[in-house]
Design a protein around this nucleic acid. Structure first.
Lengths: 239, 239
DNA sequence: CGGACAATTGAACCTTCTCAACCAGAGTGG
DNA sequence: CCACTCTGGTTGAGAAGGTTCAATTGTCCG
């Protein structure tokens, strides 16, 4: 648990996440706060980034959920990665002039330009770590899709969600909000909605997971993690 | 096709790849050449990087194939990404002190420290683009595993290999070398070796692919690409 | 109350896995 | 020069996990 400094009081989920990735200087936090003032809203299903279109510049997701997505010519859809509060969008070195995939809002979303890190080494470090963590989650996704059963995929994914939302301070004792339909869950895990439904039922039956009304409750996250042999991709350093 | 400059004559596959990602200055090319002099060998099955161990610093693969790998507690194995000549290993910003996954040599491999890019902006740019392209291939892998049939996975993967090796100048008219066993192919594509075998047979039957003696020949790559609706993740700019 | 969207369930089907056996080629040692 | 062994490729038959199609229920909202 983090010792509370004077600036920690009213941290938004996004800045809380970044400040946990790397200890942020006060000016860096201030820059973040300033950027958040310029936040814009986006309705669900709108695209934050469109495949092949120019990237406007790195942005940071303040609230709501989004996901990278690809659609095959025949309509099959795959969500590639989840974008949660505090995650960066469109930041890949500054190499790509063009978005490699689309990013679509799954809920209403607020998003702000990511403050430039040129004058803030601590912020730059947070960005770089965020980028590395992002990559680690892509690898985790590959492992899930390649070698896990439906039950394992679902359990592992929910544990990942918990781990990531925890970092942004969005997990409480009785669980966390997860605004995903069973259909979008299927698009994440490479399964059909029908099978998601049945898998969810069996996890509920085993007492591993309760997913109701857009909220997830896990009786024993640590137990479930060891049960499926999961190692977290990132844990915040003790400070 | 690239106009040949005086330094282009004897480019190694690795420097050819990087120079195609971004136009490299002569000093940058020289730095690469110098680094290649310090190459070390590694036998097949040795690990270039071990999960959880400290990263020695960014390195570049000069020859041979390697792959990122994760193994589940019960022995299921998944290759996460392929590492081909000219690819960087252990370069993720400079954020990670510790390797997130293991990288194992699939063949005998030569590898050299990646020359620092501090004094070479063009080299830095090549690194950043390489990083972005690497990410794009992870996304492609997620799409394959999540939503493609065995045939599509295999065809798409082979096309990706071709695309990547082409960049390093390792593709000739009659195909390219691919030192993969059917078992490792299964570990890449999330399938069993048995099913790889059958899928390979059906692709051969359809005339899409000939995989024999560690060498892949594709009668009509472009045709196969449109047949499965594939868009290349990266194509070198015309210069 | 009607309409839309999401969740739920059943039954048949299909892709891929599992288990098992057999074959081919390369290297090794007698 | 030939058994021996090891690794990788090939094939068959049955089983399992997940999909497809289709129908039903629940729920939110105007």
């Amino acid at each position: 648990v983090r010792a509370l400094g004077h600036a920690t009081r009213a941290l938004s989920p996004a800045s809380l996440r970044l400040s946990r990735l790397a200890a942020l200087s006060d000016p860096a936090l201030e820059a973040l706060r300033a950027a958040e003032a310029e936040a814009t809203f986006l309705r669900a299903r709108r695209e934050l980034l469109t495949h092949g279109m120019a990237i406007t510049g790195p942005r940071i997701l303040l609230s709501g959920w989004a996901a990278g997505v690809t659609v095959l010519p025949d309509g099959r859809r795959q969500f590639l990665n989840m974008v949660l509060p505090g995650d960066l969008v469109g930041y890949h070195g500054h190499a790509d002039p063009v978005a490699p995939v689309s990013v679509v809002a799954l809920t209403e979303v607020t998003i702000a330009p990511a403050p430039p890190s040129d004058d803030h080494p601590t912020l730059r470090e947070a960005y770089e770590i965020s980028h590395a963590v992002d990559r680690a989650y892509l690898l985790a996704q590959i492992l899930r899709l390649g070698r896990m059963t439906a039950q394992e995929r679902l359990a592992d994914f929910v544990l990942e969600l918990r781990e990531r939302l925890e970092l942004a301070g969005l997990v409480t004792a009785d669980g966390f909000d997860a605004p995903l339909t069973q259909e979008s869950l299927g698009d994440v895990l490479g399964l059909t909605p029908v099978h998601i439904n049945r898998t969810l039922r069996s996890l509920r039956f085993d007492g591993d997971l309760i997913w109701k009304g857009g909220r997830i409750t896990m009786p024993d996250p640590a137990g479930l993690a060891t049960k499926i042999g999961r190692v977290p991709a990132f844990t915040a350093p003790d400070r």
